[in-house]
Design a binder for these strands. Sequence first.
DNA 1: AATTATACATACAAGGATGTATGTATAATT
DNA 2: AATTATACATACATCCTTGTATGTATAATT
Lengths: 201, 201
Amino acid sequence: MARRTKQEAAQTRVALLAAATAVFAEKGLAKTTLAQIASHAGLTRGAIYWHFENKAALVCALWDQLLEPYGELFNEIGMRTPAELPQGMMLIAERLLRQLLDDPQMQALVKVSLQAHGDDEFLAHTKAQRDEEKRKMLLAFQAIEAGGYLQDFHTPSSAVFLYVAFISGCFERWHSDPQSYDLACVESLLAGIKVSLFKDN
Amino acid sequence: MARRTKQEAAQTRVALLAAATAVFAEKGLAKTTLAQIASHAGLTRGAIYWHFENKAALVCALWDQLLEPYGELFNEIGMRTPAELPQGMMLIAERLLRQLLDDPQMQALVKVSLQAHGDDEFLAHTKAQRDEEKRKMLLAFQAIEAGGYLQDFHTPSSAVFLYVAFISGCFERWHSDPQSYDLACVESLLAGIKVSLFKDN
DNA sequence: AATTATACATACAAGGATGTATGTATAATT
DNA sequence: AATTATACATACATCCTTGTATGTATAATT
């Protein structure tokens, strides 16, 4: 084989990301080799090293892919009025937890994400993006506080911390104990996070 | 060197665990070699392979070490009356989150634990212990529900899920964004988890 | 049409890391 | 006192994995 058209090249990049997601989720980040990923996509390591600098860059690309749709969601939410913001934040949480129930792609990405967050290099490389998302959330919770909808024991900063901790904690629990994670549980969890952040009227 | 007395051997085992904790926390689980751990303890890989089967067994031993004091704590809590149980569960959470603020040993163990939980083999090897802890918590929350202290939207199972998710989520957030984690934040977090689980009277 | 840059595949070199086998001085046992 | 089992250290073989260098067919460019 040899040179493909740019569209085809873009497709192989996507294929590599999909293969990486699948193999990472199955074997674990550390124990997967680039050869396994390439093979899973019907390609060779040459293709990977062409599209990505190395394994770490591949993981960062996966992270971008996971973050993208929700980054936009936060932008949309930010446009709302303070009175609608709590509902908006709950909507995002609900969408994330619901997706984890049945979406295999989401499940695989969460698995990978959980492992990546244990790596300091990954955290350093993605710090800018994570800070940006955090900034959006902070603005939202500041507006929520100004509107008087935030629980009195919270600052906007602690609310962001609790919000993200809750979601990532649910991800971790889903991975450690998937049997307990069903629709009824999700609804209870959402009710819990709601009262832990917002006043009830 | 050669054979040591049994007490000395026990000491080297402890030294190896301490060295493993330090190096794992600094370099990351995957990127740490057994030679680095041995060197950090002033020993060789021979010592490690004598006391532990391999790297995974070492990690499991660390997990045991982390779990031990809190397993006992849950036992003590279980002896309380239903009316005191919510307070007891909050006490454990508070102790965990407070320890993370300033205890370097706790911080290192949490770092390692976060990475280990991304590994399926680790989860499989520790499933029995984790199930046992979960069982204790389930009993506690069942008593709490029977006493009428549990939020109406919760089942005992979902309460356990939320409780653990909250704590592990705080661990993950601390690791990802340590700057936001201070005493004031911890107090807000505890207030949040309290209202998300228990009725307010 | 000729050239150049691209999108990979293939081949190669090098470095570790692991597991195990072996050595050994000494504690424990008899 | 002699033997044996222990608690490591040392040495070795093996296997991958990564990174890079090179090859190459073809798209894109001129």
